[in-house]
């Protein structure tokens, strides 16, 4: 195989005299080989490009200087601190401090402002909602869920039904003092009697009133009877209201709407009258500062159902 050459052209050939062949010299290129060979393919001993070499030297020089000024050489479990005393941990702490310092003014404003006024102030409300959202994720999602939509026994905070009241002040009080908290004297507190377990009502009356309650919201199996109404008026209206629409001040839930803390069905209502289940919520004023509680209240109130 001969390379076709145009007339007047000289095939590229380096003068072998330029190189001193320490070992084998490649015939075609005239460049010494490293002596390495793979299946007849030999490695030419070409030098590194200049720019590469200088970059490499510059990196070495940089590393030497860097190791003097920054933490570098390992000593046991630690390392040389470097002349600048730099550490990424300290940098992080400084960053966090500066963020905290930057938020000091607005946090003090929130602490000094009544919670209802925070909602009315767009600037404060925006900050409080964002801060409340992050505090909610840490403290509240365990029971109320990440979407604040709750579950059986844990209220959905997105809807328009509030057992203890849905105004911003009521929400704030509930978060601060909790529900049935054993440690807070000002906690939201009520207890529904054990109508069945303590034999306050006989089985037939419980069934009758349960059927009556189920009828108020049109649940399956609900029948409105005068007997049921009477039993309800005598035993239940004190907390749930004469029209069964609930009494927020006493924490008596509305029994006429479509929302149920526990399951909305006749057997569930009957079981609740027999031996009521009671939820419990911590008094967060014991763990969180007032500004955070206000932020949580603003966030929860703004989820779509606040009154």
């Amino acid at each position: 195989m001969s390379t076709p050459n145009k007339p007047g052209k000289n095939p590229g050939k380096t003068d072998p005299g330029q190189h001193t062949p320490a070992n084998h010299v490649d015939d075609f290129s005239g460049i010494a080989t490293t002596g390495h060979e793979w299946d007849g393919i030999q490695e030419l001993n070409n030098p590194l490009p200049r720019w590469w070499l200088w970059t490499f030297y510059a990196c070495i020089a940089f590393a030497a200087v860097y190791s003097v000024f920054y933490p570098a050489w390992p000593i046991g479990t630690s390392a040389t601190p470097g002349l600048l005393g730099y550490s990424s941990r300290a940098e992080f702490a400084a960053n966090m401090d500066s963020v905290q310092a930057g938020n000091q003014t607005v946090l003090r404003q929130i602490a000094d402002t009544p919670v209802a006024d925070i909602v009315a102030d767009p600037e404060l409300a925006r900050f409080a909602t964002a801060a409340g959202a992050s505090a909610f994720k840490v403290n509240c999602t365990q029971c109320h869920g990440t979407g604040a939509s709750g579950g059986p026994g844990y209220p959905n905070l997105n809807d328009d039904s509030w057992i203890w009241g849905g105004t911003i002040d009521a929400v704030y009080t509930t978060i601060a003092h909790g529900v049935r908290s054993p440690t807070d004297p000002d906690t939201r507190y009520n207890i529904m009697p054990n109508f069945g377990a303590d034999e306050l009502l006989d089985k037939a009356s419980i069934k009758t009133v349960a059927t009556y309650v189920a009828s108020l919201s049109g649940l399956e199996g609900g029948v409105s009877t005068p007997e049921g109404a009477t039993i309800f008026a005598d035993n239940c209206a004190a907390c749930h209201g004469e029209n069964a629409k609930g009494v927020a001040d006493l924490g008596g839930p509305d029994l006429t709407d479509a929302l149920w803390l526990y399951e909305g069905s006749l057997p569930s209502i009957q079981a609740q009258i027999e031996k009521p289940r009671h939820g419990m919520m911590p008094a967060w004023s014991e763990k969180l500062d007032d500004a955070t509680i206000k932020e949580l209240a603003v966030y929860v109130h703004g989820l779509g159902g606040g009154q």
Partner: peptide, 15 residues
Amino acid sequence: DRNPLFVLLSDGSVQ
């Protein structure tokens, strides 16, 4: 909204 996808309201409507 991804969470919650919907909210049941007291009058039975959905938001």
